[in-house]
Amino acid sequence: MNEFFNMGGYAFYVWSSIGLFLGAMVIDFIGLSMKEKTVKRNIKSWMRRKLNK
């Protein structure tokens, strides 16, 4: 197991690369979910204001 994490002495380079890759995907994914919620909320509040007029 240690050998696996050590990556033949290249641990820093290999794990930073994998980390960046997965990190970017996760940031993209979370960003998308948040954006969807915000946009839907904004449209809803705009509709409510239009109704109240």
Partner: peptide, 25 residues
């Protein structure tokens, strides 16, 4: 893919384990 690339694939005869960066790069 990451399991195969990081665990199962053999190390490169020239680059050792550093070549595994290929699987994301």
């Amino acid at each position: 893919g990451l399991y195969e690339g990081l665990v199962l694939a053999p190390a490169d005869y020239q680059q050792g384990d550093s070549f595994r960066i290929i699987y994301v790069h």
